[in-house]
Design a protein around this nucleic acid. Structure first.
Length: 135
DNA sequence: GCCAACGTTGGC
DNA sequence: GCCAACGTTGGC
């Protein structure tokens, strides 16, 4: 079981859009590192949903229900998508500010590789963030 | 809206 | 295969 964090710009695709839709096809990834992370996802992996540009906070938790397959939005077979479903809206959102302020989270992919839209989360980081969300 | 970070492209 | 130019992302 692995943990991940995906970013989305809320005016493009927000947590609420995701919940309304039920199943989210995570498409549009055009970055090799992010793609490799998508390929490494397994059914049941938990994924934080982060709002970039607006919000700047982790708003919800999702899980992988279908592993990487050809991105239907392109013919180019270099790119893949995964299917996600919502698990829960976090009782308290965890802001980028909080994450940056937390010494234990200073090596998190979200900060170290700010521009990567799909990053891996260590189990201990996952627990810390979930702890902050249920604080 | 600005700009830093960084990935990608293309000329050599 | 290097590296400058360019484009995109995302925090501020």
């Amino acid at each position: 079981m692995n943990y991940w964090l995906v970013k989305s710009e809320p005016f493009k695709y927000s947590w609420d859009d995701f919940v309304n839709q039920g199943t989210g096809v995570w498409d549009g990834v055009r970055n090799y590192q992010a793609r490799n992370n998508l390929k490494a996802m397994q059914v049941g992996d938990l994924v934080f949903f982060y709002h970039s540009n607006e919000g700047l906070e982790i708003v919800g938790l999702a899980k992988v229900v279908k592993e990487a397959y050809q991105d239907p939005t392109t013919e180019d077979n270099r790119w893949v998508v995964v299917d996600l479903v919502p698990v829960e809206k976090l009782p308290k959102t965890v802001t980028l500010k909080q994450i940056k302020a937390d010494e234990r989270l200073k090596d998190i992919g979200l900060i170290k590789q700010m521009r990567l839209s799909v990053t891996a989360i260590k189990p201990e980081e996952f627990d810390i963030i979930l702890g902050l969300a249920h604080d």
